[in-house]
Design a protein around this nucleic acid. Sequence first.
DNA 1: ATAGCAACCTGAGGGC
DNA 2: TGCCCTCAGGTTGCTA
Length: 271
Amino acid sequence: MPELPEVETCRRGITPHIVNHTVKEVVVRNANMRWPITDTIDDIQGQVIDSVTRRAKYLLLKTHKGTLLLHLGMSGTLRVIPEHTEVSKHDHFDLVFDNGLTLRLNDPRRFGAVLWLTGDVYQHPLLASQGPEPLSEQFDGQYLYEKSRNKTVAIKTFIMNNHIVVGVGNIYANESLFQAGINPKKAAGKISKKRFIDLAKRIKKVLQQAIEQGGTTLKDFTQADGRPGYFAQSLMVYGRKDQPCFLCETPLKEIKQGGRATTFCPRCQKN
DNA sequence: ATAGCAACCTGAGGGC
DNA sequence: TGCCCTCAGGTTGCTA
């Protein structure tokens, strides 16, 4: 489910329920996530959550003693629920708080991660190598233009590369390229500065709008309170293979790039 | 350095 | 009904 807008929606949803509250208990039902959840996780017990922030698609729950890093992978969801709520399949991890609420991670595919880190988390290899946030001032067309010179990689692959910019997953890569009218196969190094300036704006806008609408619910994404996101109805190309382009009626094409489906309009995104 | 691709894992859906 | 195949919001870490 989660690209940046979904993770950000999640962050906003859980924050008011857990910030300034104390972790009463930690429950690990299945430690076999992307990396094993280690026993050091118990150190969060008794800690107060000072803040919930996001870096790339990671959520950072900061406490005095350390930081809990959460990643939702492909299929993870976080819910805030009353303590003692019945456990469902794939409910792998709980933080039980002193206010009667529980933060519960459900993740069928277990590509997500739960890591307890001490020290400067931003120095951790997972975060240290990440590119700029797409919604920051640091990220703009000039930046993309400079980064892309002499690169033969396809533009779609380029903007999905976390070393270039974080948080742009498959849905929003497809959508922003459609909005910018850029062919996903075009070599990044052959795109003009002018087009990159437009593309960067489109990326920001599409992410911002998706956040405002609570993210994209495809099949299983829900906000922290269980409600779906509403951006799916705004999708112009993602998941619309063979359906008519909303602008020109041409049937949308689907190709594979780096193992991921790319949907685009062969007419509106000719070059 | 860079690009392509398999790997991690479960579930849904399609074809037969 | 069941089996087999493909595909899915992500990211790491191999191989050339």
